[in-house]
Design a protein around this nucleic acid. Structure first.
Lengths: 135, 135
DNA sequence: CCATTAATGTTTGAACTTCAAACTAATTAA
DNA sequence: TTAATTAGTTTGAAGTTCAAACATTAATGG
């Protein structure tokens, strides 16, 4: 818990030091949009983030206004809206991913290879356990 | 990251299922008050939670209204306010701690001894790494 | 084909969390 | 004593989120 909260705080400071006008949550929305790839409808991204579509609509609207995201109507299904990242968003996301890599490297440095594998196994185990639990 | 967010969500659901009128944040304020022991001034607890004293004042006020916390003026230094948990808060906190233990036990059950040790090593390592990092 | 049902997003109103800045009161230092 | 510091509170604003009501479009069943 402590570790995670520390990471969140550091992540937020990094974002600020980049001089963006983004909150951490907003950066995570952008991250989810980029990670979504083809599955970039409002509902798919909302599900990915674990929020309602209403919440995401609000977030997308402000990020669109700030020039980080764009909406594009689907041709297949005219109810659907595809959310796209602008170059500006991609640039910020690169920095954000860079931070994650830096952090991961720190952990990699810390542990011998064998223990790293064990760590991954442990985390995957916990993840699937709780994924079932959360019903 | 996924694991942690899952845990937070499960924790919130548990709280709701206990039928309390507390949000997760409020439960964490109570937790911090209890954990603070003697160092239970507004500023000490705010520091523990990583929020400003202004934020904590607001939280304490609503929790006082709900009957979970009490304020007591310090005799040594009349600027200081000690924040105390009521029996009601202690009861909720017991449940909250119980959940943490339950969760920890689940992880212990889940992972073989070797993986547990590696996990702890990794987390401690990350913790100290970031403790230094966050300047 | 048409009426009903379902799915996709949006809007709105409310609640919660948080902060910065201005403020009050009490203590400490010069 | 006066000035500076510390402790806590208040206030106004911003950000996040949800549920519920809504509009639009698609699918389904007679």
């Amino acid at each position: 818990m402590k570790v995670f909260n520390q990471i969140l705080r550091i992540e937020e400071n990094k974002l600020k030091s980049f001089g963006t006008d983004l909150s951490l949550k907003e950066a995570h929305v952008i991250e989810a949009v980029v990670a979504a790839g083809e599955k970039n409808t409002v509902s798919a991204i909302a599900a990915r983030l674990g929020v309602t579509t209403g919440s995401l609509t609000v977030a997308v609207t402000t990020l669109e206004r700030k020039g980080y995201l764009e909406r594009k109507k689907s041709q297949d299904d005219r109810r659907r809206i595809h959310v796209l990242a602008t170059p500006k968003a991609l640039k910020v996301n690169e920095m954000h991913i860079g931070f994650h890599e830096e952090m991961t490297n720190a952990v990699v440095q810390l542990l011998p290879r064998e223990q790293l594998e064990t760590l991954v196994t442990a985390l995957v185990g916990i993840n699937t356990y709780f994924a079932n639990e959360r019903e």
